[in-house]
């Protein structure tokens, strides 16, 4: 009864990628999401564009570029969230896993498609920024490439993280969780409790909370892995020779985070009732 036919994983990945890209192109939710970002970005950019001096023009470029990169990070996270939640809610994965296409391959393709879509947008924003620099007669700053790399790394990590959250909870809850359980918030809370303790407040609850906030801060994934080391590059768009490796470290961190989230997502996907 066995056919012994060779199953081409390449064809399966290609088929899955094409289907996922079709989803990104046709999802009205994603389209609305993208349009909101585009309109907001354009509106925020208007005052900067009409600046007169050279300094103002640089600030405008830096503002617009930073804004679109921030939007891209959120949009990439949305790609990861929607690609999983839409398939789980539509219950169409049973049409995939009743063919010789294992969950790891489908999940990997979903991740790759979101990363590829994010990379395309990332390149588009970078190319636009370089074009604007040339049109405004400014030197093309190396910081543009660095920030793009950082944004891409952050997007990769967040795509993996949101895919995992979408796998284990309702997409709205996943989005709320990702917003509330933000490492910056918990870092701020940890600093605040530490400040209170240093000021002389002797409360066991406060000490406990301080430890808890620190633990949650350590556990939660970071959007930017090296904010202290690379924060200035985002504003100055200048990269010192010793700073380039942080872009690759960030990418390494994002890949490790994505790999962890992929394994966890796969674990839950294989145990989900897909019927």
């Amino acid at each position: 009864m066995e056919s012994g036919r060779q199953i081409s994983a390449g064809e399966q990945i290609k088929g899955n990628l094409q289907a996922h890209f079709a989803y990104y192109r046709r999802s009205r939710l994603l389209l609305a999401f993208g349009l909101v970002f585009l309109i907001l970005g354009a509106l925020f950019s208007l005052p900067a564009i009409f600046g007169q001096s050279h300094v103002k023009t640089f600030a405008a470029l830096q503002n617009i570029f930073g804004l679109f990169n921030d939007f891209l990070i959120v949009f990439s996270a949305a790609l990861g969230l929607f690609i999983i939640s839409s398939h789980l809610r539509a219950r169409n994965l049973k049409m995939v896993f009743t063919k010789p296409c294992p969950p790891q391959l489908w999940l990997g393709s979903a991740f790759l498609s979101a990363v590829a879509a994010s990379l395309l947008l990332n390149i588009l924003i970078l190319v636009c920024a370089i074009a604007v620099s040339l049109v405004w007669h400014m030197r093309v700053q190396a910081g543009l490439v660095f920030v793009s790399l950082s944004t891409f790394a952050a997007s990769v990590g967040l795509i993996g993280y949101l895919m995992f959250l979408a796998m284990i909870m309702h997409p709205v809850l996943a989005a709320v969780f990702a917003l509330i359980f933000n490492p910056d918030i918990f870092y701020g809370m940890h600093v605040w409790t530490q400040g209170m303790i240093t000021a002389g407040t002797k409360s066991a609850i406060l000490r406990g909370l301080s430890h808890l906030f620190h633990f949650v801060y350590m556990v939660l994934p970071m959007v930017h892995a090296f904010p202290k080391e690379t924060g200035r590059i985002q504003t100055a768009l200048r990269v010192e020779p010793g700073q380039w490796h942080y872009a690759f470290y960030s990418l390494g961190y994002a890949l490790a985070l994505a790999a962890l989230c992929y394994c966890l997502s796969l674990f839950f996907l294989e145990r989900k009732r897909l019927i």
């Binding site: 290609k14 088929g15 094409q18 289907a19 079709a22 063919k99 010789p100």
Partner: peptide, 23 residues
Amino acid sequence: PHYDLYLTVEEAVRYYVSLYGMR
């Protein structure tokens, strides 16, 4: 029929056949 509703008729057939790892 829990299919990927965003695909067209032809795309859906091509997609489901591609999952068998064949062209």
